[in-house]
Amino acid sequence: MTVQELIPSMELTVFHLAQPERPVAGGYAGDLLSWVISRAGQDCAWLTIMSNQNVAAVALMADVSCIILTEGVQPDADLLRRSREKAVNLLGTSLDTFSAACRLGKALA
């Protein structure tokens, strides 16, 4: 499944879509950045409520396929800018993190 295909399937909000054709190979949920770096696999969809711009840098370093801000969290202006600069896919959902993870699991099944 690609990020482009995941968007309708999870009814995600698009904040910035730089690489629609990136594959989504799994998921990871977490907010502590070094935990994410430790555990998120390449091409994961990363579920988080962190909305500051360091999130874009971590997504880039860890090669996740997209960031999904859960709980209706909006990206701050710097995160949006940095996602554009770094060509990072930045998406959102009003679902809580658990429900979003369930939806993601279903979409990938």
Binding site: L32, I37, S38
Partner: peptide, 12 residues
């Protein structure tokens, strides 16, 4: 507050 400080950087 920004998400750092898990004490995982050096282990990573």
């Amino acid at each position: 507050e920004l998400g750092f400080g898990a004490g995982m950087g050096l282990p990573n």
